[in-house]
């Protein structure tokens, strides 16, 4: 079953779509941000899964092991950076939601649009 052999990529694709769907359909700003986080996590999975080598260990030189197989450390390093970016994006997004709540009294997108059109 070649298709099932790529199951980790299927997980990536499904989680990605779930996140994007949440961002698009939810009306609540916090839920939108949650969707965005899920969407970004899917990409983390893509990077983590691509560096895995069958039987690979951590890329550390050990005594007595002459020809070790190890997983590629670079994508892990890259995605660590991307995780940091994701965390700061979520934090900033939440900060903006707090300010929206302070000035509009609501975090539902419909309410916010309605309140602006009242003016």
């Amino acid at each position: 079953m070649e298709l099932l052999g790529y199951y980790n990529y299927w997980v990536f694709a499904v989680v990605l779509c779930l996140g994007l769907y949440t961002v698009i359909t939810r009306n609540n700003l916090i839920k939108k941000l949650l969707g965005l986080s899920i969407f970004q996590s899917a990409v983390f999975l893509l990077y983590i899964t691509m560096d895995k080598v069958d039987g690979g260990t951590a890329p550390i030189i050990q005594k007595g092991v002459s020809d070790p197989i190890f997983s590629n450390p670079l994508p892990q390093v890259l995605i660590l950076t991307a995780i940091v970016v994701g965390v700061s994006t979520t934090a900033l997004g939440l900060a903006i939601v707090v300010r929206i709540k302070e000035s509009y009294g609501s975090i539902e997108e419909d309410d916010i649009l309605a309140r602006d059109s009242e003016l």
Binding site: L29, L36, T89, G93, I96, Y104, L113
Partner: peptide, 16 residues
């Protein structure tokens, strides 16, 4: 604020 929130969502999707 809602305008920036929208920009944040779309900008993050673009970067991702």
């Amino acid at each position: 604020l809602p305008a920036v929130f929208k920009y944040l969502i779309l900008g993050t999707i673009g970067a991702t």
